[in-house]
């Protein structure tokens, strides 16, 4: 686990990144993208319902809107489960995977 002070520095930079004016990928979207990656690394899979649990203090509709923002910007794919049509899976596009690789 990273040192607490390093986490504080990272959160400070994230706070600066979230300031307006927003880039193509907003700070909120960037944050949820990396939170999704953390869940993916833990579980090996992602569903849309996982997104609702992310984003501290955010409503599920806000989290869903952010997910749709990531989809529109070509960072995630959303596919319907073949056996259970009610379930939808979230996957990362090559652009997102390249971003993770560059930053790892």
């Amino acid at each position: 686990m990273p040192d607490f002070t390093k986490i504080k520095l990272l959160n400070f930079l994230i706070a600066l990144r979230r300031l307006p004016p927003l880039s193509e990928l907003s700070g909120e979207e960037e944050r949820i993208l990396f939170e999704l990656k953390a869940v993916w690394d833990r579980q090996g899979a992602l569903s849309v319902s996982d997104v609702y649990d992310l984003g501290e203090g955010k409503s599920p509709s806000t989290s869903y809107r952010l997910l749709m923002g990531l989809k529109d910007k070509g960072l995630v794919d959303i596919s319907i489960n073949e056996t259970d049509k009610r379930k939808r899976h979230v996957g990362f596009t090559p652009v997102a995977n390249k971003l993770f690789a560059d930053l790892s």
Binding site: F4, I7, K8, N11, F12, I14, A15, R18, L19, P20, E56, G57
Partner: peptide, 9 residues
């Protein structure tokens, strides 16, 4: 918060 997770603009 001490971790700065709620450091909003």
């Amino acid at each position: 918060q001490p971790s700065l997770t709620n450091l909003t603009p």
